[in-house]
Amino acid sequence: MSGDVVLDVRDLRVSFSVRRAGRKYRVQAVDGASLSVVEGEVLGIVGESGCGKTTVGRSIVGLARPDSGAIRFKGADLIGAGGATLREMRLNVRMVFQDPYASLNPRRVIGDSVAEAGDINGMFGSRAERSAAIAATLTAVGLDPSFATRYPYELSGGQRQRAGIARAILPTPSVVIADEPVSALDVSVQAQVLNLMMDLREQLKLSMVFISHDLGVIGQISNRVAVMYMGRIVEQAGTRTVLDGPLHPYTRSLVAAIPRPDPSRRIVAAIEASEPPSQFARPRGCAYAARCPIASDRCLADVPQLRPAAEDGRLVACHNV
């Protein structure tokens, strides 16, 4: 897919201060991540808990404060932006959260939550115009307009997530950051919400960053995938390229671990325990080295940089592939 880059993230670093046992630690949640989203595409970010994928998403919408790096929306830097630029970008880059129950105000009716961004920006000329906009948006996400006067607790999980999506598309943005939007849902409902997101993307010409731990879901919705491990992107390429022929050893183990509804792929007994290193004691070299079957001495000393690994635009951060 070629087109204009709408969102460009360069060398993003984000750290948090954490207090443990009376001592202060800095946890480097994102450690130099770069990615870009081309107009109309869905970029998937996949990784396991604590890899920094959510922090990347929150940094883009301004909910986390980066230490360094650049986040450009249509060329304008969002870090440190203020006033009109910030307002404009907040309408254009919107977020859908994982748990729609926690992210919808329980004491406000759905209609008010959906219209909030429009209200703040004085978008609606009259009450009638506001109601019409809410009704149209609810219809677009497959909810009856009567849901406008209901409270979140009256909705099922799938309906709540539809409301969460409605809130992110009024007024219509350019980019939607979706952070695990279907992880809390049952598979049959998950399929409905994924279909909705694919439809909206087409109708509203959205670009999307889709964050998930689930490679199956990522494979369904995204055009390209970035795989994260311990705050860094370790592999980035077209979705099929990554899923069908992962190159980085971490991506390989991740793809192999996806549960598949295929009884011929039995779980084999006794896999040696192997877990990511502690966030408080990052290894000096490659963060995956301790778990990696092809690690060499160099991996323990040098952090591998993301570099082109094939002519098809695939990027891999590994010394040994």
């Binding site: 598979v187 049959s188 998950q190 399929a191 409905q192 994924l194 279909n195 694919m198 689930d214 490679l215 199956g216 879901v217 494979g219 369904q220 099929r240 899923l243 996806i258 549960p259 598949r260 509804p261």
Partner: peptide
């Protein structure tokens, strides 16, 4: 059958997922 059909990993490449 419906449960299996709506799993993303069973539909790789399909434009839409079947739903129940």
């Amino acid at each position: 059958r419906g449960l299996m059909d709506c799993m993303p990993s069973r539909n790789s490449g399909a434009r839409r997922l079947p739903t129940i």
